[in-house]
Design a protein around this nucleic acid. Structure first.
Lengths: 96, 96
DNA sequence: TTGTCAGGCAAGTGCTTGCTTGCCTATCCT
DNA sequence: AGGATAGGCAAGCAAGCACTTGCCTGACAA
């Protein structure tokens, strides 16, 4: 749903995560935690980041694939493009 | 701030309000209430809509101008374009 | 097999939010 | 003046959210 995407984007930590994934796609949870701390100055715990990733995945902005004990996170910009199409370019005339 | 815009857009009622203002700009609070009820099937009270308008104004998505006892609400798409520029087209490389 | 590393589950907490209720101010019309 | 109309203020409430804490599972290496 469109609302889920906006809700996901409403949090600065989640935007930082997307930022990080854009910079280096396919990171694991621990990688993300480390780089968010150093590069973005965020001190989020692993669980917090994990929950944010769940939200992002729920919004379709992040896809995951597990290999062995590692879970890689990939950025998916499709929902963003959908939003641009319906909400921010035209603008559109159809329902939410 | 960018986060305020996303937060404002995260609520379906607020998106409906923007929708309505896009359809007919410069509506008053009562007008909006009436048209949200009939055209969008929403049964929001006046106060609820008023508070949503405050949020939208805080995000810069709506500007107001008062004349006499009427307060007209105007759509402002600038924050949307800013978001498209920094977040949804390129993508950008700078900070939140 | 035992330890370590990557990640998951779930209850609890404090803050925010969307909304209601009730009352108040200001403007206009007659 | 007096009523009707357009809107504002503020306290209260229930649900949602971001985050923590503590413990658990599953994969790999020694």
């Amino acid at each position: 749903m469109v609302g889920d995407v906006f809700k996901a984007l409403a949090d600065p930590t989640r935007r930082a995560i997307l930022d990080e994934l854009l910079d280096r796609d396919g990171q694991t949870l621990f990688e993300l935690c480390a780089r968010l701390a150093t590069k973005h100055g965020l001190s989020s715990t692993r669980q917090a980041v994990s929950q944010h990733l769940d939200v992002l995945e729920g919004a379709g902005l992040v896809t995951t694939c597990r290999q062995g004990r590692y879970k890689y996170h990939h950025l998916n910009t499709t929902p963003l493009h959908i939003i641009v199409e319906r909400w921010l370019s035209g603008h559109r005339r159809d329902r939410t």
